[in-house]
Design a binder for these strands. Structure first.
Lengths: 122, 122
DNA sequence: CAGTATCCGTAAGGATACTG
DNA sequence: CAGTATCCTTACGGATACTG
């Protein structure tokens, strides 16, 4: 790989790249998508399965994913209420590139953090 | 793909995912890396090839990449000064997952933006 | 040429309390 | 149960001016 074809990244001044970064580059989106890969999940279950997320951020993240057509939201008119979230096909299609990224991280983050740590103290 | 193995993403409460997001989830990093895939590039050439980036953000982005060991910085002691940047092997290894992401964006962003637009006006 | 230094506005996200 | 409503802090990034 030596410059032959990063045009998909750099093309149009990075607009297509920016479009995807605008969606996934926040603290919770990819984590929520990955959690929904197991199937249909209720709000509270998501909240429990994603450590550290607040109700507010979970709601915001889900609403954005819904607006983008990556997640469906199904309200069951019961008491107490039951709301279920699931990935759309488009949402599912995000899993492989997300895995590619996570896989890269698993392979390289240790050395990256070592490099940064070495630089910091001396 | 149905929940069988997103553990690389969700594992450890998403720490490995967060580690990579902390690096690449900003406005310029992936664009700079992609631009450096062509080989060795000078500061001003980078500045010219990445539309919209300020000197300040280019410098900050490069310094972070350098601290992470993804980019080398070579100063040639001349007048006027010449500074060249290039990807390390680790830096190059980031290109494929970045392409996977960009490729996903190229395939799906149009429909995503259509979905969001449809939702917005009514 | 290759940066620093400074100032400033916005927006992302956390904490907490409340509700149909 | 599944959210809203506020308040608040900080971190990111843009604009501009200056320098070895």
């Amino acid at each position: 790989m030596n410059g032959e074809d990063t045009c998909m990244i750099r093309g149009d001044g990075g607009r297509i790249l920016r479009a995807v970064l605008d969606r996934i580059c926040n603290k919770w989106t990819l984590l929520v998508v990955a959690t929904l890969d197991q199937g249909t999940v209720r709000f509270t279950d998501l909240h429990r399965q994603i450590p550290g997320i607040s109700q507010r951020m979970l709601t915001l993240t889900l609403r954005n994913l819904e607006a983008d057509g990556l997640v469906t939201r199904t309200v069951h008119p019961e008491v107490p209420p039951r709301v279920e979230y699931a990935l759309t096909p488009t949402g599912k299609s995000l899993i492989p590139p997300a895995l590619a990224l996570a896989s890269w991280a698993a392979d390289h983050v240790p050395e990256i953090e070592a490099t940064r740590a070495a630089r910091e103290h001396g």
